[in-house]
């Protein structure tokens, strides 16, 4: 009886391994393809689409192209994206912490109204407001040449509405701790800075990680705000043109190379901080 159970389980595990290996292949295939294409030689094999996977000759042509500022602004776009990601991460984390703390720990008039109102606001599609945001930013000179601070401003300004996960985390910190500190004469701000924040390392890292990853994908709004000014594009805006616009013949392998360079830092960071990410999304999922 026991033996057959064990045999069954071994058989089950074998099947499980086979499925897992299959899944891994499917999941990794596009990335392997991306990397292989990025090494296809531009000079000898042409930079456009081909219908085979493994290049006939490997070369660094495409990477050399990306690093040559006389030919492309890729490095500028890359720098822009890092700058945007950095500041958005910094300010967004601060804003989210402030809002979450206020909503989790303090009781004030209009609290529930504010939460409901933001919930409803979140149901409007963001693109609707693009043109309006564009002209608002233009009033402050934050489009085209000033697009980078403009993009940071818009991301940070509306980030207060993404407080759910963080507030959920604060809710789990016992209120008794706060009250004890208040009896000892600590002010609200002291409690926030000295007690709550140090206890919230996982959620801070989660918030920062999510904030950092978003600007790398921002194509829609960034292209709308920065149009006609190549040096203030971000990587997504600059590079999608290589795929979508016919002016860029033979840029496909360069796109792949650029994509690999974009993916590396984000992926590394993500792998490194994966534990916190899991904690955040799991908590968020349960809270809704």
């Amino acid at each position: 009886m026991k033996g057959s159970y064990k045999a069954k389980r071994t058989a089950g595990n074998v099947i499980a391994y086979i499925i897992l290996i299959l899944i891994s292949i499917i999941w990794l295939f596009p990335f392997v393809g991306l990397v292989l294409q990025s090494f296809r030689s531009y000079a000898t094999e042409y930079g456009g689409m081909v219908d085979y996977l493994v290049p006939k000759a490997f070369s660094l042509d495409n990477y050399k192209f990306l690093f040559d500022l006389s030919q492309t602004n890729y490095l500028l776009w890359y720098r822009n994206t890092i700058v945007i990601a950095f500041f958005v991460t910094l300010f967004q984390t601060i804003v989210v912490l402030c809002v979450s703390y206020a909503l989790s720990r303090m009781r004030f008039t209009g609290r529930t109204f504010l939460m409901r109102f933001w919930l409803i606001l979140g149901m409007f599609p963001g693109f609707l407001t693009m043109i309006c945001l564009y002209f608002l930013l233009k009033q402050f000179g934050l489009t085209q040449a000033g697009a980078i601070p403009g993009l940071i401003l818009v991301s940070v300004a509306s980030s207060g509405m993404g407080y759910y996960v963080c507030k959920g985390y604060f809710d789990t910190i016992p209120k008794a701790l706060d009250e004890a500190a208040r009896i000892d004469g600590a002010t609200r701000s002291k409690i926030f800075f000295v007690m709550t924040i140090p206890m919230s390392k996982p959620i801070i890292i989660y918030t920062a990680l999510v904030a950092f990853m978003a600007p790398w994908c921002d194509y829609v709004f960034a292209s709308y705000v920065a149009f006609g000014h190549d040096s203030s594009y971000n990587v997504a805006v600059g590079m999608t043109r290589w795929v979508w616009t016919n002016d860029y013949q033979g840029y496909f392998t360069r796109f792949c190379a650029g994509g690999v360079l974009v993916a590396i830092p984000v992926t590394l960071l993500f792998m490194f901080l994966q534990k916190y990410y899991v904690e955040g999304v799991t908590g968020g999922a349960v809270k809704g």
Binding site: F135, F227, G228, R241, T245
Partner: peptide, 15 residues
Amino acid sequence: EAVGEGDAAGNMITD
């Protein structure tokens, strides 16, 4: 600036 002939019209009309 490099703005493709396809995009130019769209961008001009936006603003």
